[in-house]
Each structure stands twice: as structure tokens, then as C-alpha cells.
């Protein structure tokens, strides 16, 4: 893929992370504040609440989107740092392959976990 396209996606992934991370921080770490506004649903890390949240399509999609954006943004950044080491063309290709394969594997694994909990019938004690 062309470098300019990879860089453009890197920026877009950054913007997606910014929005979804704000959502994550609001839900997970600002529940006391949300309680004052009457928007809290209880302890955000309570197993039942985590399960209930994961059963919603919105959160399932959000988790997968955040996972994809964070993986892409982070791995592209790592690739940039590695390229700064002035690697040979062969090593650059090797880095590209390793990062693409590991990124895809981590994404599939994470997306699978989000899908499984979404499809789960009931919470396991």
C-alpha cells in the first residue's frame, strides 16, 4: 500500500481513538461524575454490568473499532520508529510483514473475544 494512504489512516485512527478513548474514560473512570448527572449504571467493573455492556451491539462494535484503531495507530507508530533506524530495504520489508501479521492476529483474537461475549447467553459466575 502507498505510504501516503498508510499515513492518512494513521491520522484517522488517531481521531477515532480520541473519540472512543473519551467514551471509555467517561464510562470506566468518571462514573462518580456521571452519577451526579444521573447517567451512572453502577460500578463499571462489576461483572454483571460488564457483561450487560458487552451484550449491546453498540459496545461490541465500539470495542472492535477501538481495538482496530489502537492496533493500527500503535503499530504504524512502531514501524515509523523502526524505520528511523535506517534499515535496509529487506529489513524494512521484514518489519512490514511482521507488524502486519502480528497486528492482524491480535485484531482477530480481540475481535473474537468481543464477539464471543456478545453472543454469550448468560454471565458465568
Amino acid at each position: 500500500m502507498r505510504e501516503s494512504t498508510l499515513w492518512f489512516w494513521h491520522l484517522l485512527a488517531g481521531a477515532v481513538i480520541l473519540i472512543l478513548l473519551a467514551l471509555h474514560m467517561t464510562i470506566m473512570h468518571l462514573d462518580d461524575l456521571m452519577g451526579l448527572l444521573g447517567l451512572s449504571h453502577g460500578d463499571p467493573i462489576d461483572q454483571k454490568i460488564v457483561f450487560a455492556r458487552s451484550q449491546q451491539v453498540f459496545f461490541m462494535i465500539t470495542y472492535i473499532l477501538l481495538l482496530g484503531a489502537a492496533l493500527y495507530h500503535g503499530l504504524y507508530g512502531l514501524r515509523t520508529i523502526l524505520f528511523e533506524l535506517t534499515l535496509s530495504r529487506t529489513l524494512e520489508r521484514t518489519v512490514n510483514i511482521i507488524l502486519t501479521v502480528s497486528g492482524l492476529a491480535l485484531f482477530v483474537y480481540g475481535a473474537y473475544a468481543a464477539a464471543v461475549i456478545y453472543l454469550m447467553k448468560e454471565v458465568q459466575p
Binding site: 502507498r2 505510504e3 501516503s4 499515513w7 515509523t80 524505520f83 528511523e84 524494512e92
Partner: peptide, 13 residues
């Protein structure tokens, strides 16, 4: 000019 300017050793470095 894109191919060179926006290569991995172009503006992004």
C-alpha cells in the same frame, strides 16, 4: 511528484 515526496523516506521522516 507524489511517489517520491510521500515515500517512506519522504515527508513522513
Amino acid at each position: 511528484r507524489e511517489q517520491e515526496v510521500y515515500s517512506s523516506h519522504g515527508v513522513f521522516r
